[in-house]
């Protein structure tokens, strides 16, 4: 299968790497709106094919706001936000998704309790406050200067980014069918 897919793509080495990690993670997803598959993770890159809403894809990798996918015989890049990974969506249709779900979540539908049990509601209600641990937490704090120095070493550069306002008075219509508000309309327009 590896060999077959590599022939279909123009960037064999990148794909080979991507496939290795994809196999390790066995991530899959469902496309939520019709989209072009791009040869590269850019809007103006050439299209290599199309994926339809509802199609199952294997996730090969992510870069920026893009996701590299394998959809049946086609492969390419689509926008990250065009794909959902929820088990509900994936298990509704058979095929690629099913195997991946078993791999990532174990036996689906049953409660999996592996290892040490995590913090639960009951724990929060019955815990004895531990101020010694808070003191310890405070000893780990770093200064603005130290954080900036370390950030510089990994080539992080602070940039100006405008705030994004939440749509006002969208109080009760949390079911996001995309029917209503002007903001939603505005956002819908951006994709073909």
């Amino acid at each position: 299968m590896n060999v077959l897919t590599i022939h279909k793509l123009k960037w064999p080495s990148v794909l080979a790497l991507g496939l290795a990690s994809a196999l390790a993670l066995a991530e899959s997803g469902t496309v939520i709106r019709n989209a072009d598959l791009k040869e590269k993770p850019f809007l103006d890159a050439t299209s290599t094919g199309k994926v339809a809403a509802g199609a199952q894809v294997n996730i090969v990798g992510r870069q920026g706001s893009w996701m590299q996918v394998q959809a049946g015989p086609s492969a390419g890049w689509i926008k990250l936000l065009n794909v959902r990974t929820g088990t509900a969506a994936a298990s509704s249709s058979s095929g690629i998704g099913t195997l991946a779900n078993v791999v990532t979540t174990g036996s689906s539908g049953t409660t999996v309790t592996t290892g040490v049990k995590g913090l639960s509601k009951e724990d929060i209600q019955t815990a004895v406050p531990n101020y010694k641990e808070v003191e310890k937490l405070s000893t780990f704090a770093v200064s603005e200067q130290d954080a900036a120095k370390s950030a510089k070493q990994v080539k992080l550069v602070a940039v100006e980014v405008a705030d994004i306002a939440l749509p006002t008075s969208s109080s009760s219509n949390s079911n996001s069918g995309g029917s209503g508000g002007n903001n939603v309309d505005d956002m819908r327009r951006r994709r073909p």
Binding site: L80, R84, S108, T111, T114
Partner: peptide, 11 residues
């Protein structure tokens, strides 16, 4: 997306 792929029944 990682969280979405987790089984909600998982403890």
């Amino acid at each position: 997306q990682t969280l979405d792929a987790l089984n909600p029944q998982d403890g």
